[in-house]
Nucleic acid binder design. Structure first.
Length: 689
DNA sequence: TTTCCCAAGCTTTTT
DNA sequence: GCTTGGGAAA
């Protein structure tokens, strides 16, 4: 019997049913972005203009207007950023937003490839190579090919891989790149190009992908398999891309593919904050966006809610020094505030003590530690400070330093897991075979050939030529691997099978500091416990590297959220009540290396701009007058050229002195008279650091 | 072929 | 301060 079901009429105005008062909670510019119609939208957002907040509301708005959350894709620069944004969006909307797909380009591509990799000749369980794995591959090939036999210097494995990667990300051939930017290797163009193609072949042969492969193989998957593109892009009803100024050519092409079915893309960026040129990022992507997408609506966010006017004035001043002109002047809603300080310290120790004491004072005043950040150009710039912080018992996390998965002993353990996941993973095999006594590069290579060419069960020793020198060790290894391969073993059980096997090796290999490394392993085991599948765990380690200090800080202080130490790059998108920038020296920021790069100085300047605009209330830029270099001794350093000749109404000079020598250099006391300017060496004599 | 030892060289920013 | 490469002994 046929029936008729009568639908009730839909309410004419959906807005009355929104749970969020968008117009009330956002300014008109933000509101325009959040409620923008379908189609391509480009948002030019200055620093501190509530970009993140706007994107969060946009996601919520889309969900409220009926877009299925799983058809929204939010591409961000780090997974941390994605998780934070989706968390906040979920908070706005009773958890519905948690089903939004979010992550980095790399993690999104990984998801696509895990499904479609066989279409382009890769196994689904391909392994992901990090930079040092990739360098290991290059090393194996280079040794096998005997390239380093020449009389001149052949590039090192890391340089080689960096070269391959740079060529790919800039869409030029390795040969062209060498001639244009690395003339010192020009004598080896043919050899290096050979190696590059061997590297590619090796990855295909053993089912391996490096970071670049994740992007470019996904792109080529879309380009050559239209049904896949249709399917994937069809599931992306809305694509939102954060930090668009830091996308490279590949990523921009991916965005075009993802939006090719529905055409709903929102890209958000700020060309003045482009700091990834070294990785092939092309800030021009922002300006090319309207050409790439017909009918692009361009919207702007200009009101700064983060920083006080004095901090913005400094930022505005600094950015005018760029070669390239930026059409930017930031205005704050917060008019009042302390002047940014340019703090001169005698040396590293003074600088560190100044920062620690100031932090303690701020904490006294009620500023939580995790609202304070110390930023620096390079991870090692903070060594002295870290010692001093430990002395003062100030807990901290450091972002941008050594990652958990970069530590050799962690990489070893991960290698066992990787083999269990992908038994053809030659890099992982190489790594763990070399740990066996009596096995060197040659034997390892031979064994890998046997193993990979072998039967379905790669962990059989029978019928394989092997020497008694390492037979017993190999048998033990295979027994262990077979145990963790067992389908019943949970991830935690697998790791608990590995550790007793690996500990003797660890003890032997790192006898001096093995207890410390053992501790890392314990953290690692604990971390593994939070994952359910081995493949998720491995992917997360590769794509969302965890800071070594993050685990330590967590273990050490449950009571107080720690201070943040971070490279400027890793602080992108974040904001803090108080920001310290240390080692603001010529040669550090701008980095010595940047002088050789075309456009390098501007990028360093933008880096300073990013650092400055992280601050809400207080900004202290400090530098030591005397630096020490082993092999050179002590020498005078020079503060960053970017702050030369700034008026005192823009940045206030401070001097740090020992108690008794002069009034303490702490507010509200007026800053003491500056020391006589140090005798700077001539630019010619100036050392890189 | 492996392993040990010593000298040389280099040292940014990230997925 | 650390990795990397070369050379020589086992």
């Amino acid at each position: 019997m046929a029936r008729r079901f009568v639908l009730k009429p839909q309410p004419a105005d959906l807005s009355t049913r929104f749970t969020i008062d968008y117009a009330g909670e956002l300014n008109p510019q933000q509101y325009a972005v959040v409620t923008a119609a379908d189609g391509p939208v480009l948002v030019i957002a200055g620093a501190g203009t509530g970009k993140t907040r706007t994107l969060i509301y946009r996601v919520a708005y889309l969900v409220e207007t009926g877009v299925p959350p799983e058809q929204i894709v939010l591409l961000t620069f780090t997974r941390r950023a994605a998780a934070e944004m989706l968390g906040r969006a979920s908070g706005l909307l009773d958890g519905r937003c948690s089903r939004v797909r979010g992550g980095t380009f790399h993690s999104f591509c990984l998801g696509v490839l895990r499904e479609y990799a066989p279409r382009i000749g890769f196994p689904r369980n391909f392994s992901i190579l990090d930079a040092s794995d990739a360098a290991d591959v290059v090393d194996v090939l280079r040794t096998a090919g005997g390239y380093h036999k020449g009389d001149k210097r052949f590039p090192r494995k890391r340089s080689l891989h960096a070269l391959f990667s740079a060529a790919l990300n800039r869409d030029v051939s390795v040969g062209e790149l060498i001639l244009s930017r690395f003339p010192q290797f020009a004598g080896y163009v043919n050899e290096i190009e050979d190696l590059a193609s061997q590297y590619e072949a090796y990855k295909v042969q053993y089912g391996l992908m490096d970071y670049d492969d994740l992007l470019r193989r996904t792109l080529s998957l879309f380009e050559h398999h239209d049904d896949v593109r249709q399917r994937v892009s069809g599931s992306c009803l809305h694509v939102l891309v954060d930090e668009y100024q830091d996308t490279n050519r590949l990523q921009a092409a991916l965005v075009r593919q993802l939006a090719s079915v529905h055409g709903n893309v929102m890209a958000v960026g700020d060309d003045a904050q482009s700091i990834y040129g070294f990785r092939g990022a092309e800030p021009e992507n922002i300006f090319a966006f309207p050409d790439d997408f017909n009918g692009t609506q361009v919207l702007k966010l200009e009101h700064n809610y983060r920083s006080t006017q004095p901090i913005l004035s400094l930022a505005n001043h600094v950015i005018t020094k760029a070669e390239q002109k930026y059409d930017k002047t930031l205005f704050s809603e917060k008019k009042q505030g302390e002047l940014p300080a340019l703090v001169q310290a005698a040396d590293d120790r003074f600088e560190s003590r100044f920062i620690c004491q100031m932090i303690l004072q701020l904490r006294e005043e009620g500023v939580p530690l995790n609202r304070i950040a110390v930023l620096f150009r390079s991870a090692y710039n903070s060594y002295h400070l870290e010692t001093e912080l430990n002395r003062c018992n100030i807990p901290f996390v450091k972002y941008g330093g050594l990652k958990l998965n970069e530590a050799a002993h962690i990489k070893d353990v991960v290698a066992y897991l990787r083999i269990a996941e992908n038994p053809r993973d030659a890099v992982a095999w190489n790594r763990i075979l070399l740990l066996l006594p009596g096995v060197g590069p040659k034997t390892a290579n031979d064994l890998i050939q046997w193993i990979v060419a072998g039967s379905e069960d790669p962990f059989q020793l029978e019928h394989r030529p092997f020497s008694p020198r390492y037979a017993e060790a190999l048998r033990e290894l295979f027994d262990m691997l077979r145990a963790i391969r067992s389908p019943e073993a949970t991830l935690l059980q697998q790791i608990e099978t590995i550790t007793p096997y690996y500990e003797p090796i660890l003890k032997q290999k790192y006898y001096e500091d093995y207890p410390k490394r053992l501790q890392d392993l314990e953290h690692f085991v604990a971390l593994a416990g939070t994952f359910s599948s081995r493949s998720d765990f491995l992917a997360s380690l590769a794509l969302d590297p965890i800071e070594l200090t993050a685990l330590e800080a967590e273990a050490a202080s449950k009571d107080e959220p720690p201070l943040v130490l971070s490279t400027i790059h890793s602080a992108k998108g974040l904001e803090f009540h108080t920001v310290f920038l240390l080692h603001a020296l010529d040669g550090v920021l701008p980095s010595f290396y940047s002088l050789k790069e075309p456009g390098g100085l501007d990028e360093e300047l933008r880096l300073l701009y990013v650092a400055i605009t992280r601050a809400e209330e207080n900004l202290f830029i400090s530098y030591p007058v005397v630096q020490y270099r082993r092999s050179y001794g002590e020498y005078f350093s020079r503060p960053t050229r970017f702050l030369d000749n700034l008026p005192e109404q823009i940045i206030e000079p401070w001097t740090v002195v020992e108690e008794g020598a002069a009034p303490p250099a702490l507010p509200p006391a007026p800053p003491p008279v500056a020391l006589p300017a140090p005798a700077f060496p001539d630019d010619d004599d100036l050392l890189p650091f």
